[in-house]
């Protein structure tokens, strides 16, 4: 297992490298980019830029400096916010975005699994159709529509919950978290239903029934793990979707997270900030994908062993 984890970790290195390199050259080549001297840049920022990117040196040295800075977690100075570095801005917003995203993910997984299992066990019953139609709505109504509509209903009309803002109280968090999680709830519910139905038709479930085990034991001991596997492998894309969605949700509800800085940066053409956020999220998503892969391997003995065998033959 450790071997497998290490191999996976190494296989993520080229992806990370690709992202960072792409980021560097995109910024370099962008028309009116940060290194374009014709754009009026406040002198303080120009000085900061010069200091962190060593603009007077050849390109390849600039690239190396950039890599070295990244390794220290330094994304360079912001264009817009003169007193802050990009790293500071990201670390300011990250705790908020993390709370939002993690809560949404948790709800998506728990509710999605529950709905999917419920529908699969009542296959072709009206309750199945009802749950799955609701899930379909969750998929076709994007969260940037769902969020204002929820705000309209629960905030403007019913006055139950605030329409925006962020605070420690639960009431500030309900609407953003729900709006962010709904599409993922829907995907996970559909995935779980399809997966459980397929598993229940497999030969080994028939064997378990032939052994006289009750439904409860069959579901928990024989069907749970294979049903979860496709859901686990969806967690990678789900993370990316939640991160992407958080950008728009933070914008709508006025939540001071990374996503809002990102949109502000994008609209203000704050190159280093936008770049920094993209690299930060890319790394985060790749690392989470890695975690998902490990979880998958831990649950599926065949993968675990195939990898171990492959590793052994590699060594021999």
């Amino acid at each position: 297992m450790l071997h497998f984890a290490l191999r996976r970790l190494f296989s993520a290195v080229p992806t990370l490298f690709l992202i960072v390199t792409l980021a560097f050259f995109l910024v370099r080549w962008a028309p009116g980019g940060p290194f374009d001297r014709e754009r009026p840049i406040p002198p303080e920022i120009a000085a900061n830029l010069n200091a962190s990117f060593h603009l007077d040196e050849p390109l390849w040295r600039q690239y190396l400096h950039y890599l070295a800075n990244l390794l220290h977690g330094d994304f360079g100075p912001s264009f817009k916010y003169q007193d802050y570095s990009v790293t500071e801005l990201i670390w300011q917003g990250f705790p908020v975005s993390l709370q939002l995203g993690a809560s949404a993910m948790l709800i998506a997984v728990l509710l999605g699994l529950a709905m999917g299992v419920f529908a699969a066990l009542r296959r072709n019953h009206w309750m199945d159709y009802f749950v799955m139609s609701t899930a379909m709505l969750g998929i076709v109504i994007p969260n940037f529509v769902m969020a204002p509509v929820l705000g309209l209903i629960f905030g403007v009309y019913l006055h139950w919950l605030p329409v925006g803002g962020w605070g420690d109280e639960l009431r500030y968090r309900i609407l953003p978290v729900i709006a962010l999680s709904l599409p993922q709830v829907a995907y996970i519910a559909r995935l779980t239903r399809a997966s459980l139905i397929e598993v229940l038709h497999s030969a080994y479930i028939r064997t378990a029934r032939a052994k006289g085990l009750p439904l409860r034991k069959i579901l928990l001991q024989h069907a749970a793990r294979p049903t979860l596997l496709p859901v686990i492998s969806y967690l990678g894309p789900a993370t990316a979707a939640i991160v992407t969605g958080s950008v728009v949700i933070e914008q709508i509800f006025g939540i001071p997270g990374i996503g809002r800085y990102f949109v502000q940066g994008a609209l203000n053409r704050d190159y280093t900030l936008v770049m920094g956020v993209v690299v930060f999220y890319a790394v985060l998503i790749i690392l989470l994908n890695l975690l998902v892969d490990l979880l998958y391997a831990w649950l599926d003995p065949r993968i675990r062993h195939a990898q171990r065998d492959a590793a052994l033959t590699h060594v021999l």
Binding site: T15, V243, F262, V278
Partner: peptide
């Protein structure tokens, strides 16, 4: 594995 939405936004910027 890449978060493409961000890259498209990057291009737009």
């Amino acid at each position: 594995a890449l978060p493409f939405m961000f890259f498209v936004i990057l291009l737009m910027v």
